[in-house]
């Protein structure tokens, strides 16, 4: 991992997302699909934390060698600033961070499942899998056409691709999990990769457990640093010996994780039970420092 100042080569809208390509030879050289970068968004001190982004694509060869592309929703704090600054500006970037997806050794048929922004790391993964002679099939879901991630690129990368939108504005109407079982059958999927919202990842985990398919998911959790310091991006992860679990850091032990080891109910169930009942609820809500 290194910290470097990277020039913006291009900055453009991509459907509902915004895409930035950086000149980042040192990071591109080492980057693997499933890894991410942390970008400083210097809007004074109002929002000072870096923003984590999936590495969407790197190019190591050819005329644009040493470049790296990432995408984001331009409506957030910090990301709005990123979307507005133009080419040739410099960004302060740390990367590549985290543990990327592992490639299968012997198995060949890979099914890649994503919703929305989750497709960002999977297109990079598809590229790398194809370079290793694997078969890649993709199920890409989104809320609507605007949020379908680079459909033409997807068609180029995958043997077959199913695009599913919730409102039916593009591809099949429904949810991406509606098409996954059939795609898995048709493509003879031996390995499943997924990235996107937790609900999707949990469904993929359940599907893979049922079919005894090995899988990896790229998880997203709120993180303050992305470097392994702050312990905010904790994911309850079963120990290898099966005896208990640890809250591991998504930024170091992940983002690519084994869904069979994630304690989904614990990870996703934290929120509702914590909502206090006023007025007497609050004194007993204990939160610790640090």
């Amino acid at each position: 991992m290194i910290r470097t100042r990277c020039e913006i080569l291009s900055s453009k809208k991509a459907g509902a997302y915004h895409s930035i390509t950086l000149v980042a030879p040192e990071i591109s050289e080492k980057a693997r699909p499933g890894q991410f970068i942390e970008v400083a968004v210097p809007e004074g001190r109002r929002f000072f934390l870096r923003r984590p982004f999936w590495i969407h694509q790197v190019s190591r060869r050819g005329g644009w060698a040493g470049t790296l592309e990432f995408l984001f929703d331009p409506r957030g704090e910090g990301t709005a600033w990123l979307a507005e600054i133009g080419a040739h500006r410099l960004l302060d970037v740390i990367g590549p961070l985290g543990r990327g997806f592992a490639y299968p050794k012997d198995l060949t048929a890979c099914l890649l499942v994503s919703v929305g922004y989750g497709a960002a790391p999977l297109y990079f993964l598809a590229e790398e899998l194809k370079a290793r002679g694997k078969r890649v099939d993709m199920a890409v879901g989104a809320a609507d056409q605007e949020h379908v991630f680079k459909p033409i690129e997807g068609k180029r990368l995958a043997q077959t691709i199913s695009i599913v939108t919730q409102d039916g504005s593009f591809g099949i109407r429904g949810r991406v999990m509606d098409v996954v079982p059939e795609m898995a059958d048709k493509s003879g999927a031996e390995v499943v990769y997924a990235a996107g919202p937790r609900e999707l990842l949990r469904d993929v985990a359940a599907f893979c457990r049922e079919r005894s398919l090995p899988a990896q998911v790229g998880i997203e959790e709120r993180m303050a640093c992305g470097l392994g310091l702050c312990l905010t991006c904790a994911v309850p992860y079963q120990r290898v010996d099966g005896k208990g679990f640890d809250n591991v850091r998504a930024c170091v032990e992940g983002p690519a994780m084994n869904p069979a080891r994630i304690l989904w109910d614990r990870w996703m169930g934290g929120e509702p039970q914590m909502v206090p009942t006023p007025p007497e609820g609050f004194p007993v809500v204990r939160s610790w420092p640090g």
Binding site: E221, R222, M223, A224, C230, L231, T232, C233, A234, V235, P236, F245, D246, N247, R266, W267, G269, G270, E271, M274, S287, W288
Partner: peptide
């Protein structure tokens, strides 16, 4: 083990 996420 610490509290559930979201933690920040």
């Amino acid at each position: 083990k610490g509290v559930a996420t979201s933690r920040m």
